[in-house]
Amino acid sequence: MRDMADKPPFRFLPPKSRPARLRPWVQLAFAAIWLAPVRTWTAGIPSCVFHCYACPLVSLSCPVGLVANYATWHIIPWLTIAVVFSVAALVGSLVCGWMCPFGALQDLFNKIPGPKISLPKWTGYGRYVVLVGVVIVLPYVLGGMGIAYDDQVVSICRECPAGAVEAAVPRQVMAWAGIDGPVHVHTIKWVLIAVFLVSITVIYRPWCKVLCPLGGFLALFNRFSFFQLHLNRPQCINCNLCHSRCSMDVEVTKAPNSAGCIRCLDCIACGALTPSIPAFGKKPPKEDEPGDRV
């Protein structure tokens, strides 16, 4: 098998696979669920996606914010752990590619034409630094010193771009419109918002790639989850289509279930790579079975 890096990327990409074409609509449908104005009844239930619970329109709670709050209190968030573990065991980071509203927002902004930058792979470890350092250890230590989560100057919720875009901006607009009470958005927050909006236009999903603690945790389950991506090696003709399609810079033919993948399924157009759920009876095709080719 020749090395994929030797092959040039596709100049004119063939049409995307059907699941990949459906993905924006699924993201839109899930966004409608996460943004449903029913939090009076459901706000205490943790969700499995990264969506700020201070947003005026929010149905469920952000699991990352909950874990950080509980770390301050020195309590284990069993319900949040159960929800996130269950989803991670079922589909892994499929959540990031198909369900996360913050991921959908980044997808949308990245469609703005202009120069695009690729990040080195080691930056993906930043997600685990944030998860352990900022979401668990820092609030745990500050909580032990008697500082409440709301009073902690450095915390995931204060520095979170989702909180800035989904909560600070709409609340400020509502305050200006006289719908809500006065809100003071710090200058640093506005700078964060500006940096984030610029970065998502030039880098594909920078938050997901480098800093998202929830995405990093879900991605750990990619190799073990029920949902798997299976590469039928005899069918692979090294056409490089999967590499050309992948916006997350995953080495698809080497490790289709790696932690850098968000399972957007943009890479399955050639037919050699197929999604499978072996535990539920939908097994990957046999090695000698012919598949759809582009």
């Binding site: 706000a43 709670s61 909950l66 968030p77 069993w78 319900l79």
Partner: peptide
């Protein structure tokens, strides 16, 4: 009760308890 306690704690964590 455990579930109710968890949901109650979550509400407190999100600061939405008073709003509910």
């Amino acid at each position: 009760n455990w579930l109710r306690r968890q949901v109650g704690l979550n509400l407190q964590a999100t600061g939405l308890e008073a709003m509910s």
